[in-house]
Structures are given as structure tokens and as C-alpha cells.
Simulated assay, not measured.
Amino acid sequence: MDGSQGDLLEAFREGPRLEPAAVRRFLSDNPEFLTGDDGLLDELGLKVAQGVSGGNVVEFAPAAMARIHAAHQQEATQRQQLEETARANFSAQAQTHGAVVDLLEARNHSDLARRVNELAQQRFGLAAGVIALETDTHSPAGWKMLVEGQVDMILGGDQRLARMGFAPTALGLFGDRAEEIASMAMVRMAIWEPSRQGLLAFGSADPEGFTQDMGSELVAFLARVVERTAERWPILS
């Protein structure tokens, strides 16, 4: 070990008193300490530049460049995912706003149920859309009739407001299309005064169409629109 290397090692032994400026000055005065140590160059991701007089210039090694490229690719992928999510959210909101206009143009309860099913299929690419009502007499034309307490049973809990994902207890809502349904989005409704319990349900043929970790805000918004629209017309007792 020559004197310069000994000086640097001694400085490291002294611990906290070693300053970056001192290391910089040492490497500037003794470049061969770095350029002559292949192991250290590999650890730092550097290599001696080829074709340079004196061999005292170092450049990034391929491994270092690969790390930079990988980081760039990861950043680009994350940015692309964010952009795709933003576009999907914007599209969903635009379709929901269009669906609201369709629902508000309903002429009666039967037409409202028809429009819910049509917007489910045509606007959202789903298998079906259903309006259901708990009643001990009869439900409006086109609506699914439920017995008292069935909304709680379908949603899986007393006064639970929404349920996303697959629920076997909800398959009956979709009638002859039940076999196609692999996931559902369902929101509780309260219609008329005194209120009657109801349900707005959408069914998808895709098992991942609706999952438990999805938010129910847009479906709940549509449920509120259906509630207010249905209340335009009285229900016959």
C-alpha cells in the first residue's frame, strides 16, 4: 500500500471527520486509486473509458445504464396506467351522465325499467339492469317483485347500502338471464312515502366486471335518479 492509499484509509478510520470535499480532493490528486481498482469500479457501476489518453476518465457501465433504463420504463408504465385509469373514469362518468338523461325521459314505471335494462346493455356493455321492489301486493310492470326483507338478504346485511361482486342470492333478480351473470353491482333504494325498500341491480357476464373492492358511487348516483324518477308516478296499492 502506498502512502496516498494509507492516507485515505486513515481518513476513513477517523470516521465522522471525513468530509466529501476531502475524498473528492484525494481522488482528483490520485485518479489511479479509482481507475486501477476493477472491483471498486464494478461496485460503483463504472468503467474506464476506452480510447482516452492516460486512462483517467471513467464512464457509466452498461449495468448502470440498464438500471436507469429500467427506472425510466417503470415510470413510463406507471404514467400510462394513470392515464388509462383517468380515461376510463372520464368515460364512465360521461356514460353515467348520458344514462341520467335517458332515465329522466321515462314516461312511466314500465318505461323506466326498460330504460334501465337498455342503458345497462347499450351504454355500459353489461348483461342486464333491473329495478326491484319489496311489496306484498304487486310491483310496477317490468319491476322485479321481492318479499319483505329480501333486499337485506340480497345485499348481505341489515341496512347495507350497496354490494359489489358476485352474490348467489341475487341471481333471481335477472330472470332468464341469470345463467349469464357472473358479477353484480347493487344499491338499495327507498321509494315513495312511506318509503318502500327497493333495489337497483346491474349484472355483468364478466367475473371481474364488478368486484368487492370497487367503489359503488356511480351506481348509487343512478339509484338516486331512479328513485326520484319513479316517484313522479304513484304506485297502485
Score class of each variant (00 low, 15 high):
residue 44 L to R: 01
residue 84 E to N: 06
residue 142 G to E: 08
residue 104 L to H: 04
residue 129 G to K: 03
residue 175 G to P: 05
residue 234 P to Y: 10
residue 122 Q to F: 13
residue 119 L to K: 06
residue 125 G to C: 12
residue 148 E to T: 04
residue 83 E to P: 00
residue 125 G to E: 11
residue 33 F to N: 08
residue 228 R to D: 13
residue 65 M to V: 05
residue 233 W to E: 12
residue 58 V to H: 09
residue 190 A to F: 04
residue 154 I to M: 15
residue 18 L to K: 03
residue 90 F to T: 15
residue 170 A to Y: 05
residue 143 W to H: 04
residue 8 L to T: 04
residue 45 G to R: 02
residue 44 L to E: 11
residue 37 D to H: 09
residue 14 E to H: 13
residue 189 M to E: 05
residue 102 D to L: 14
residue 115 R to V: 07
residue 11 A to N: 08
residue 34 L to F: 09
residue 229 T to G: 02
residue 212 Q to R: 09
residue 91 S to Q: 10
residue 95 Q to G: 11
residue 51 G to W: 03
residue 73 Q to F: 13
residue 141 A to I: 01
residue 179 E to V: 05
residue 122 Q to K: 09
residue 234 P to V: 06
residue 10 E to S: 15
residue 205 A to Q: 06
residue 149 G to N: 10
residue 119 L to F: 14
residue 153 M to V: 12
residue 29 D to G: 13
residue 114 R to A: 14
residue 79 R to V: 00
residue 30 N to S: 09
residue 184 M to Q: 11
residue 97 H to Q: 07
residue 218 L to Y: 08
residue 105 E to L: 12
residue 132 A to N: 05
residue 148 E to I: 02
residue 219 V to R: 00
residue 55 G to M: 04
residue 56 N to M: 12
residue 151 V to M: 03
residue 214 M to S: 13
residue 230 A to G: 05
residue 144 K to H: 08
residue 217 E to K: 01
residue 41 L to T: 08
residue 223 A to D: 05
residue 73 Q to A: 15
residue 50 Q to I: 07
residue 33 F to K: 00
residue 96 T to L: 01
residue 79 R to L: 12
residue 156 G to H: 05
residue 17 R to F: 13
residue 110 S to Y: 10
residue 111 D to W: 02
residue 2 D to I: 07
residue 152 D to R: 00
residue 126 L to A: 05
residue 42 D to Q: 10
residue 3 G to M: 10
residue 141 A to W: 01
residue 204 S to N: 06
residue 58 V to P: 15
residue 15 G to F: 12
residue 177 R to H: 10
residue 108 N to Y: 02
residue 131 I to F: 07
residue 162 A to M: 01
residue 49 A to P: 04
residue 92 A to R: 11
residue 196 R to A: 15
residue 154 I to N: 14
residue 224 R to C: 05
residue 34 L to E: 12
residue 235 I to D: 08
residue 214 M to G: 12
residue 181 I to V: 08
residue 220 A to E: 07
residue 159 Q to K: 11
residue 18 L to C: 11
residue 136 D to F: 14
residue 54 G to V: 08
residue 150 Q to V: 02
residue 22 A to S: 14
residue 182 A to F: 00
residue 45 G to H: 03
residue 9 L to H: 08
residue 87 R to C: 04
residue 198 G to E: 06
residue 112 L to H: 13
residue 229 T to K: 02
residue 171 L to P: 07
residue 210 F to H: 06
residue 157 G to I: 09
residue 169 T to H: 12
residue 181 I to E: 02
residue 188 R to G: 15
residue 101 V to M: 09
residue 160 R to A: 15
residue 173 L to R: 05
residue 183 S to N: 07
residue 37 D to Q: 09
residue 206 D to T: 03
residue 220 A to T: 09
residue 117 N to Q: 11
residue 66 A to H: 05
residue 236 L to R: 13
residue 77 T to Y: 11
residue 1 M to A: 14
residue 174 F to S: 01
residue 139 S to V: 06
residue 59 E to Q: 12
residue 172 G to E: 01
residue 133 L to E: 08
residue 161 L to W: 01
residue 170 A to T: 02
residue 229 T to L: 02
residue 198 G to S: 09
residue 17 R to W: 06
residue 63 A to W: 04
residue 220 A to N: 02
residue 80 Q to M: 11
residue 194 P to R: 00
residue 104 L to P: 00
residue 25 R to V: 06
residue 188 R to M: 10
residue 201 A to P: 00
residue 20 P to M: 01
residue 13 R to Y: 11
residue 198 G to D: 08
residue 101 V to D: 10
residue 117 N to P: 03
residue 104 L to C: 13
residue 76 A to T: 07
residue 237 S to V: 06
residue 161 L to P: 01
residue 75 E to I: 00
